[in-house]
């Protein structure tokens, strides 16, 4: 991709490799959160209140980084 084309775009698109790295970081975060969830659930009685932040965090991570939710808000308007 040459530089002229990149300049025309409102947001410079990252290369494939950068996106792969971002995806893997997010996925690693999700895996860690899931494991912590599991450990909490096994260790604590009635862990609902402790698990909710993890659920919300995972939900937000997937929504934003995998599904690109903010893009729909940005471009959906006109």
């Amino acid at each position: 991709m040459d530089t002229d084309e990149q300049l025309e775009r409102p947001v410079p698109s990252s290369t494939q490799q950068e996106k792969v790295r971002l995806g893997l970081i997010v996925a690693a975060a999700l895996a860690v959160l899931t494991l912590i969830e599991y450990v909490i659930a096994v260790g604590i009685d009635d862990p609902l209140i402790w698990l909710l932040p993890f659920v919300i965090a995972k939900f937000a991570l997937i929504l934003e980084y995998f599904m690109h939710f903010s893009a729909v808000l940005g471009k959906g308007d006109h």
């Binding site: 599991y38 909490i40 659930a41 862990p47 609902l48 698990l51 993890f54 659920v55 939900f59």
Partner: peptide
């Protein structure tokens, strides 16, 4: 599944 998993197994 992020919501269903804790709802059914963990809570």
């Amino acid at each position: 599944w992020v919501v269903i998993y804790p709802s059914l197994y963990l809570f």
